[in-house]
Structures are given as structure tokens and as C-alpha cells.
């Protein structure tokens, strides 16, 4: 088994709002192995972005805090470090890419200066060397004529180009872990394909680990080794990408996959829907947080929150349906995905 580079244990993170604590993530645990890509999948309000902010410890600046649990990176406990120590890790060993490439770049510096900055700060390079390396990095992320582009400002580049620049900044110090929060959501599909390709290619070359946060099951299927499905602050299901897509088991994962339109030929039938809306984090239902929307909800789901049940090798789900059927679960609402991506129940 490969070395675990990131371990999150029973971590809750949240915000103080009107003297109340709002838990955006609720005792979540997961880990990332070296060279692996972990996808955190969920809809808005599921706590996936808060998870990434907590791992980077920038949640402190966003008005929140880690409430319990710990985060280990390479065996060091990140959640106990002070911000000075974090500053030497952030951007150096752990880097992050945000959703909107246009607003994560500084409009008054050239892109070359912005890439060189982290090299000067973390690796004490001279400005001249740093700029040279910045140009090499631009070439590496597939930007044509990098010498010219390095002297340009963000507004002179397209959205896809800006995201490449952001990736170059993130990769400047050869991080061991890259956290990408919806890196392609703001981009068109053809550009998204380019960026996902680039990330996979860079991972092969540098051996870094990636945590990719996305709401798109399609993107997850494409790049992930492991998948964590989150809903309203909790982890619903976790497993290898093959397990999650061939044997989705938690009713939420199943619903999420079935409600994706357009992977099969158009039929007269309605699209599968998950009834109701995503709850707000201050109005979570008791018991299982998914039970008001779950087609299989039982009495116990309303009373008690389920723990994880193992569903075979490297696959677990937090659902009472699997209590007595830990191994092979006849109750499990299985769906199959055919060779063309069509979904059948």
C-alpha cells in the first residue's frame, strides 16, 4: 500500500454565525495516497469547498475554524500548526487551484511576476532565475510563446489560458499535494478537456497527489482513483472509482448518477429525480441527513445517524440499508452503466 500523504480524521469545520456554530463538515475522514487522485463529489452546500479550505488552513481567514478532529500531512499535524508554519507549507508543499481563474490572478501584475513570486518566497530564487523558471513553467503547462505571455497581464489572456497560469503558479514549487477546487467549472467543455488532460499529464510527470473537488460525476469518472461523495456536510459513500460507478450503493449516489440527463438516448420517460431540496446546514434533519429525500427511508433513518458499513473491498457507505448485508447487499439499489454510458436500474 502506498504511503498516505494526507489523512483527515473526524474533522468538523464550521463558522460562527450569530453566536451559533454552523458545522459545514461533520466528522469527516478520508485519506489520499501518494500519486493518487481523490475526487470529492457533491452538490452546493455539501461542504466540499470548506473541506479544502480547512486542509489549507485558510478557513481561519474566511471566518471559520476547525472545530474538532485533525488533519495530517506527511505525518505532521496541520491542524495544530500556527499560521507562520502553515505559510511555509502552503504554496510550497500543498498548492491550491480555485474555481474562477480570472479572479484568482492579480490584475496589476504580469503573469510571469505572479508565478515567480512563489519561487522567490519559498525557494529564495533571485528575481532573474525565478522569471526564467516562470517561463519554463508556462511552457510546461502548454502556453504558446511563453516569453511573450509572461510579460502580459491576466486580462490579456483567455479563461483557459488563465487557468493554465494558475496551474503553473500552483506547480511552481513542485508541491506534493495539489488541491483543485472545481478547476474546470467556469470553463467550456472543450477547454475543460484540455485542462483535465494537462492535470493528468503533470501528475504522471511529477508524481504529485491531487484532491479534486467537483460537482460533476463525469469529471470524477475521468480523473479519479478514489471518490468521496459528500452530502450536506457528511460523507455518504467512499470507494475506488470502479466500485462507485459499477456498484453505487448509497441512495444519494444512485440518485445523483440517475439524474444526470442525456447519457442515454432521449426517451419519453421523465428523468429520475431526487425529491425535495438540499437542506441548509443550520436546518439539518435528525438521524440520517439524507432521509427526507431518500426513497428507501426507514424508521431507524429518522432516529439514528448511520455509521459506515463496509461493502466489500475498499468501498463503504453510510446507510442503514447495508446494516445486515455488509457483504453482498440484496437491498442495495444497484444501477448498471453500459459501455456507452447508458444508465439502467
Amino acid at each position: 500500500m502506498a504511503r498516505k500523504i494526507l489523512e483527515v480524521n473526524e474533522m468538523s469545520a464550521g463558522f460562527f454565525v450569530n453566536k451559533e456554530i454552523l458545522k459545514a463538515t461533520d466528522r469527516i475522514s478520508f485519506s489520499v495516497e501518494e500519486g493518487q487522485t481523490l475526487c470529492i463529489v457533491g452538490e452546493s452546500g455539501s461542504g466540499k469547498s470548506v473541506t479544502s479550505l480547512a486542509v489549507m488552513r485558510i478557513i481561519d481567514y474566511a471566518g471559520g475554524m476547525i472545530l474538532e478532529g485533525d488533519i495530517k500531512f506527511n505525518g505532521e499535524v496541520l491542524s495544530e500548526k500556527d499560521q507562520d508554519e502553515m505559510r511555509s507549507i502552503r504554496g510550497n508543499q500543498i498548492a491550491m487551484i480555485f474555481q474562477d481563474p480570472m479572479s484568482s490572478l492579480n490584475p496589476v501584475f504580469t503573469v510571469g511576476e505572479q508565478i515567480a513570486e512563489s519561487l522567490r518566497l519559498h525557494q529564495r530564487k533571485s528575481p532573474k532565475d525565478a522569471m526564467k523558471m516562470a517561463i519554463d513553467l508556462l511552457r510546461e503547462v502548454g502556453i504558446p510563446s511563453p516569453e511573450v505571455r509572461a510579460r502580459q497581464y491576466p486580462h490579456e489572456l483567455s479563461g483557459g489560458m488563465c487557468q493554465r497560469v494558475v496551474i503553473a503558479i500552483a506547480l511552481a514549487c513542485r508541491p506534493e499535494l495539489l488541491i483543485a477546487d472545481e478547476p474546470t467549472t467556469a470553463l467550456d467543455v472543450t477547454v475543460q478537456a484540455q485542462i483535465l488532460d494537462l492535470l493528468q499529464q503533470l501528475q504522471r510527470e511529477t508524481g504529485m497527489s491531487i484532491v479534486l473537488i467537483t460537482h460533476d460525476m463525469g469529471v470524477a469518472a475521468e480523473v479519479a482513483d478514489r471518490i468521496v461523495v459528500m452530502y450536506a456536510g457528511g460523507i455518504m459513500e467512499e470507494g475506488s472509482v470502479e466500485e462507485i460507478f459499477s456498484k453505487p450503493s448509497h441512495p444519494y449516489t444512485v440518485g445523483l448518477l440517475k439524474s444526470i440527463p442525456g447519457f442515454e438516448a432521449k426517451t419519453e420517460e421523465d428523468l429520475y429525480t431526487i425529491k425535495g431540496n438540499i437542506p441548509r446546514i443550520n436546518q439539518l434533519p435528525g438521524g440520517c441527513r439524507f432521509h427526507p429525500r431518500c426513497p428507501h427511508a426507514m424508521d431507524i433513518c429518522r432516529r439514528e445517524e448511520p455509521g459506515f458499513f463496509q461493502l466489500g473491498n475498499d468501498h463503504k457507505a453510510a446507510c442503514w440499508l447495508f446494516e445486515e448485508h455488509s457483504d453482498e447487499s440484496p437491498l442495495s439499489p444497484r444501477i448498471n452503466i453500459g459501455s456507452q454510458g447508458e444508465v439502467t436500474v
Binding site: A193, D197, A221, S339, G341
Partner: peptide, 25 residues
């Protein structure tokens, strides 16, 4: 063809033949 081939499909078994376009619009 390129546009359709770049839709990510929710099926990891499909290592699809993607047509990656060069450049931007």
C-alpha cells in the same frame, strides 16, 4: 464531433477517444 467528445462521461470504464482542440475560440 470535438465538442461532443469532450463531454466527461460518468463511466470510468470508458477511456474515450477525446478530440482535444488546439487553442481558444
Amino acid at each position: 464531433a470535438a465538442l461532443l467528445s469532450s463531454i466527461p462521461k460518468p463511466n470510468p470504464a470508458l477511456k474515450r477517444e477525446r478530440i482535444i482542440l488546439k487553442g481558444d475560440v
